[in-house]
Design a protein around this nucleic acid. Sequence first.
DNA 1: ACCCAGGGTCATA
DNA 2: TATGACCATGGG
Length: 212
Amino acid sequence: MSQRSALLKIFHRLNECYGQQHWWPADSPFEVMVGAILTQNTSWNNVEKAIDNLKSANALNVQTMLNIHEKKLAKLIRPSGYFNIKSKRLKNFVIWFDEEGRFNSLNKLDDNILRERLLDVNGIGPETADDILLYAFDRPIFVIDTYTRRLLKSMNLIDGAEPYETLRSLFESSLAADVDLFKEYHALIVRHAKEKCTQQDTCHHCLVESPL
DNA sequence: ACCCAGGGTCATA
DNA sequence: TATGACCATGGG
């Protein structure tokens, strides 16, 4: 079976099993961007606590995050772990975001240019950039995370050591450049990794480890 | 007491 | 380019 049809079948099975995922869990594009940085190598449960702290302090907006002291910001995001380095990364990002003219100006850039600009920000690597591109800027960029790599590996679709860009182009060349599809697919992969199918053995759809 | 979690940077060879 | 050290909390 071609990789293309395998990726399509995996999506349909996950979708039938779990349904719509309503991703990214956030109230605004800016919250998506902040969450994308905070969740680096960190469970979402901890990120939620940090975001709650930011909201309670009325700090989840560009202007406040520009003005707030790095030390104070670190204190607010403490539950998300790596709080000192993430405080710097948030500051780096927000300063860049503001200088570039925020959403309206950045949104005029082509997908690949915007991606390169994001990657130039210290603290933003490929996955964080792609989270932001897909879920905050609605660009058809596929997000690769450890769950995605693990899933493809478990189904023998990849060797496992492929570079990030190789896996991204695998998805992007196999699927239509559909933002909603990309959003849903990545969300389903995460859902599948974190939660066993509620339908247990009666569900044959989500058993993606079984032959396609 | 351990292990891991929706990564990324930097120093070193 | 490739590997290792480092960042740090909270839940299982």
